[in-house]
Simulated assay, not measured.
Amino acid sequence: MGRLDGKVIVLSAAAQGIGRAAAIAFAKEGAQVTATDINGEKLRELDGIQGIRTKVVDVTKKDQVEALAKEHDRVDVLFNVAGFVHHGSILDCEEADWDFTMNVNVRSMYLMSKAFLPKMLEKKSGNIINMASVASSIKGVVNRCVYSTSKAAVIGLTKSIAADFIEQGIRCNCVCPGTVDTPSLRGRIQAQPDPEQAYKDFMKRQKTGRMCTAEEVAHLCVYLASDESAYVTGTEHIIDGGWRLNLRLERHKEGNSPPMANPTPQLYLL
């Protein structure tokens, strides 16, 4: 018997990183998983894994999200993962950067939750998990202005949904990782003028001596998706190796790369 036997789970950003690890972990525990992403080529790598169905969906597009919801008679767990990391302070953040980040990191969760929540309310049972971050209202992080703002909004959205629908059998929680070793992070490191120094700078803030793995975050997500967490709602679940405990201002910099005025959709993944 798996911890998620019989549960139907839909998640975004499943092609790599945390989303991919979570999709695999959900399926291993017996769930029927619909794994979505905009990167069809990477997403197809999940084809053939028992319990996983893949579908290319841009979760920033209302019509695509609504079409996805119509394909499901029932959804037990919705896991909103899609996100984008912008580098820079408010002075480095152009309006296009702000709008893009908020669209991917917050509006996508609004669209997905609004589309799938009515199906949960029909069954008087449902579970929404949102991907937030320690870089949010939890901890001020250098050069993460719009990203941190968007993730603070995710925490607020999570608590709002939890409060509004607790009496209708709906739970809503968010996951707040620190630095997670994902393809997205590695790509951002390699894009810096001095990747080796950028990597060292990241490691300086890891008091445990290592980064978190996507699989470790997935373990937490399995718990939140399961009935083991049935009495848990409206909460931030921090998994950061104690990073938030370091209260001094960290002048961590990834490098001097300019802010991205036209981020590519491939960077949705964390």
Rank of each mutant, 00 (worst) to 15 (best):
H86R: 03
H86Y: 01
H87A: 08
G88M: 09
G88Y: 09
G88S: 07
S89V: 14
S89E: 14
S89I: 12
I90L: 15
I90K: 14
L91I: 12
L91M: 15
D92P: 13
D92L: 12
C93E: 12
C93Q: 11
C93I: 10
E95R: 08
E95G: 05
E95Y: 06
E95A: 04
A96K: 09
D97C: 08
D97M: 08
D97P: 02
W98T: 09
D99V: 07
D99W: 05
D99N: 06
D99T: 07
D99S: 06
F100N: 09
F100A: 06
T101L: 05
T101D: 06
T101E: 05
N103A: 10
N103M: 12
V104E: 04
V104N: 05
N105C: 10
V106C: 10
V106H: 08
R107M: 15
S108C: 01
S108D: 02
S108Q: 02
M109T: 06
M109K: 10
M109C: 07
Y110F: 11
Y110K: 09
L111T: 04
L111V: 02
L111F: 01
M112G: 03
M112L: 05
M112P: 01
M112K: 03
S113P: 09
K114T: 12
A115I: 08
F116R: 08
F116Y: 07
F116T: 05
L117Y: 11
P118K: 13
P118S: 12
M120Y: 07
M120A: 07
M120V: 06
M120D: 10
M120F: 06
M120E: 07
L121N: 03
E122S: 08
E122C: 04
K123D: 14
S125F: 15
G126Q: 07
I128P: 13
I128H: 14
I129W: 12
N130F: 13
N130W: 13
M131G: 13
M131H: 14
A132S: 15
A132F: 06
S133L: 11
S133C: 10
V134F: 02
V134R: 02
A135I: 00
A135G: 01
S136Q: 02
S137A: 08
S137Q: 07
S137R: 04
S137V: 07
I138Q: 00
I138A: 00
I138N: 00
I138C: 00
K139E: 00
K139N: 00
G140W: 00
G140A: 02
G140Q: 01
G140H: 00
V141I: 01
V141M: 00
V142Q: 11
V142E: 12
N143V: 04
R144F: 01
R144Q: 02
R144V: 00
C145M: 13
C145Q: 11
C145V: 12
Y147G: 01
Y147W: 03
S148R: 04
S148D: 03
T149Q: 11
S150R: 10
K151A: 03
K151W: 02
K151P: 04
A152G: 09
A153D: 09
A153F: 04
V154A: 09
V154H: 06
V154K: 06
I155D: 03
I155T: 05
I155N: 03
G156Y: 02
L157M: 13
L157F: 14
L157I: 11
L157P: 12
L157Q: 11
T158G: 15
